[in-house]
Simulated assay, not measured.
Amino acid sequence: MAGAQWSKKEEPAREGVDVGEQSRMAGLVPAEKVEGAAQQQYRQLLQQAAAKRMLAGPDHPQLKRVRAISQRLIPSAVVWNPRAKNWKWEVNVIGASAINAFCMPGGKIAVFTGILDKLQLTDDEVAMVVGHEMAHALREHARERMAKNTATQVGARIGGAVLASIFGVDPNVTDLLARGGANLLTLKFGRNDESEADLIGMEIAARAGYDPRAAVTLWKKMAQAAKGAPPEWLSTHPSGTSRIAEIERNLPRVMPLYERTLAKR
């Protein structure tokens, strides 16, 4: 009997944050369809931005900076989703004043200059922003949200209006992109999704050698920016106080990952 007890090997405890299993709801929507729609909508966004001279060129310092940070994050990110190893990751910077950033399904990332310039983000804080947005795509929150949302056409029209307000284009242009489903550019996530993305993003950044304590300073800056009209990015996010408390509770889980990465350099 004693021998039998030792014959079963226990799985080693996973280092990092614990966010539970991925929602099964996401499986109700084909990943290929969602990622195909994301690529189409991302291309249209870039075309609109370029037409308005708002798309950062390859030599733009902010684009170089965000791409360099993102490239460090990607190897640590793909462990959260096996399919992500085959994604064609793209990173672009858009010259708009909105305090915003996103990562669409399939690894299509955009960061607005408003969040970089208005909040004067450090590289560590940029890593927290990009890691957070990557986490949404890796955990397939868009697929989950689409499965739950039975009014995708209504959501798409609202999304088109938001984009029109940013770029000054006819909402019908963006409406056309979303006829097959939700407008992924402006899809809203629930607060649980946002909290999950906070923790996963912080772990991704820590494994890539970015200080996870920057998540605290980032959200303090975001809270300060929200004292006036709350940034669009914060509309469905947890309150600054609760999210900072959750981040601080999880720092002991990720600091060793960060310190180990630094020691290897």
Rank of each mutant, 00 (worst) to 15 (best):
R265L: 06
H237N: 11
E144N: 05
W80C: 06
D193R: 04
A245L: 05
A51Q: 07
M104W: 03
Q62Y: 12
R43Q: 13
D59C: 00
D117Y: 01
A151T: 11
Q153N: 11
P256Y: 12
P61Y: 10
Q71K: 13
E232V: 05
L73H: 06
A142H: 03
P231Y: 04
V34G: 02
Y210I: 07
Q224T: 15
M202C: 13
W89Q: 06
A178S: 10
A223R: 13
A26R: 15
A164Y: 11
F167S: 06
V29L: 11
A37M: 07
K64L: 15
E15V: 11
R207S: 04
Q153G: 04
S195R: 14
P256D: 07
R65S: 05
G20W: 08
G240M: 10
E196F: 00
E232S: 12
R14E: 12
L184P: 04
H136L: 07
V173L: 13
L46V: 02
L218W: 03
G114H: 03
H141T: 09
T174R: 02
D170T: 12
R207G: 11
P12R: 14
D175Q: 13
E140H: 14
D193T: 02
W87D: 02
N149A: 10
K220M: 03
F112L: 12
Q47V: 05
K221V: 07
K108Y: 11
A37K: 04
T241F: 09
K118I: 12
A50L: 05
A13M: 09
M222C: 05
P30V: 10
A215Y: 00
L262A: 13
Y42K: 09
G201N: 01
T186F: 11
Q41T: 08
G57K: 08
E246C: 00
K88C: 00
E246H: 10
K118L: 06
S7C: 05
R265S: 09
W89T: 06
T241H: 10
V111M: 07
M222R: 01
W6F: 15
R213K: 15
I99E: 08
D124I: 04
K33D: 11
Y258N: 07
R67Y: 00
K8W: 08
Y210K: 06
R65T: 02
T113N: 12
E35D: 13
G159K: 08
L199Y: 01
R243L: 12
M25C: 05
S7E: 10
G3W: 12
V93Y: 01
E35S: 14
L184D: 05
V154L: 15
V66R: 00
D59G: 01
V19Q: 09
R83W: 04
N192A: 10
G240T: 13
G190A: 10
V91L: 03
I247Y: 01
A205P: 09
N81I: 05
R179W: 09
A225E: 08
L55G: 01
V79H: 06
A164T: 07
A77G: 02
S97G: 14
D198G: 04
G228W: 03
M25K: 13
A96W: 00
P238N: 07
F167Y: 15
A142D: 07
A215V: 09
W87M: 08
S239L: 04
E194Q: 11
V93S: 02
A101I: 06
A229C: 00
V93M: 08
V129D: 02
Q120H: 14
K64S: 01
N92D: 11
R207D: 14
